[in-house]
Design a protein around this nucleic acid. Structure first.
Lengths: 249, 249
DNA sequence: CGACGTTTTGATTTGGATCAACGCCCGTGG
DNA sequence: CCACGGGCGTTGATCCAAATCAAAACGTCG
């Protein structure tokens, strides 16, 4: 039985209906829960790779550090995300994972993924599509880092986050909670915390956004989309090539 | 019959032996060849996504442009690479593809990939592993762009390129041909052509590299590895989870 | 030889980094 | 109830790595 409906299932069904068999597989994966506190490091780059996680509640970040401490955050994880899929083909994980706030994760062994691979080609293909889609998102981020100004980068990040959040909560309009501090935002966008502060202020003055504690309201979304040439990669993925499923949803 | 041995097969067999069935599937994919001239654009971001390519000969680049012309090169393709796998789940391709020199490609329809998915779980899993590995490489590049100085970025690029080239040509030591011009290198590393020129000169003066026409020799590879905290993602991928194959190679 | 693409070199500018101080909020403990 | 201390965000002064601008020096290929 499912206590609260799973965000993973919600997220996947946003793209394609799932059969009862598939939902059962996912329930199995989300069976056990574990809590982590804000700021806690869950694993470190270089650790041997044995578990994956489904995010049940809270935000997390994955990052890669340089030996001298410079840090690049490479992914921001939300509820419903699968963490660690990228590293599935690696002996050791390539990034570290840290809870931004108090979080609930469902850990499961790499082997459990084998079960999915063996029994549901359709679910396999869907997960694979999403992994590849993640890669496209990473390419967008790369373009932002390589070619955009600080203001554009922040704008890009806000658009990306809100597009992702809208998938699971359809009531979300132009305001959302951003539990990252400015140092973390800087580590994500390749800037410094000081410059994030200055640019945020400027964006407020110029009417792009409004801030209120942890909340961000995007005022000129169209203008920001245009400035950053933003493409929403979350809305439409092509599932026409998915193997059809015997059972019906 | 195979005229020259396929670099795709060579590359894949670097990781795991392939059965005759799998090799037949790949031969099918590499059946037809098409030539493109240096500088020719093969497809553009936004085009509908219908073909994939195996690179037979020559280097290519994939890039994402901003509307005002700023360009970010996101991937450098070598012989043996599959181009377009990333976009397989997208209706439209997200990047443009351009031949850096005269190239030979083997185009094949997305549908041909379906055939692979249906008939060889092992080959499917291998291709998927490599796609995920690509994502890890992209994360490394992101870290370089976000947190490294110009000299470190160039060093990182050279290490990455040589590591990749060593997979297919084992006789390769510390010298290789780099057919990219400085403008392209700049577009790859998020810098300008002028600064690439200056930094290259400096690296030569300081004894990191030697240049000779299109050839680059890496003189202080260990030092560069250390500076950039370089990890070779091409040498070891974990194939222990691959489904076993009935037939033997 | 001329022409075009590329690299180089130098002068100048600038976006963002660095450094340092200050203020705010909140939790904790006396 | 207030003092404190630590984590964050803000603000201003200064600095610097890389961008920009512009011109010259290369090829190399007709």
């Amino acid at each position: 039985m499912q206590k609260t409906s799973s965000c993973l299932v919600t997220k996947l069904q946003h793209y394609v209906p799932l059969s009862e068999t598939d939902r059962a597989l996912l329930r199995e994966i989300e069976k056990s829960e574990r809590n982590y506190q804000a700021g806690q490091e869950i694993y470190q780059g270089g650790d041997t790779n044995k578990e994956l996680f489904v995010v049940k509640r809270g935000w997390l970040i994955s990052y890669a550090d340089m030996p001298d401490g410079r840090r690049q955050i490479v992914k921001i994880h939300h509820p419903g995300d699968i963490v660690g899929f990228t590293d599935i083909a690696l002996k050791d994980v390539s990034t570290s994972l840290c809870a931004v706030e108090n979080v609930v994760l469902c850990p499961f062994a790499k082997q459990a993924m084998d079960e999915v691979f063996r029994t549901s080609p359709r679910l396999t293909a869907l997960l694979m599509s999403l992994a590849l889609r993640d890669q496209v998102v990473l390419i967008d981020l790369l373009r932002a880092m390589g070619r955009m100004s600080a203001l554009e980068r922040i704008g890009y990040m806000l658009l990306d986050l809100i597009a992702r959040l809208r998938i699971t909560s359809s009531e979300l309009t132009d305001r959302f909670r951003l539990p990252l501090n400015q140092t973390q935002i800087a580590q994500y966008l390749g800037l410094t915390n000081v410059y994030i502060s200055k640019t945020f202020s400027r964006m407020e003055v110029e009417g792009y956004i409004r801030r209120d504690g942890l909340h961000i309201q995007i005022l000129r979304e169209d203008r920001l989309r245009e400035m950053t040439d933003f493409h929403n990669r979350y809305d439409d993925i092509d599932i026409s090539w998915l193997p059809s499923d015997g059972t019906q949803a």
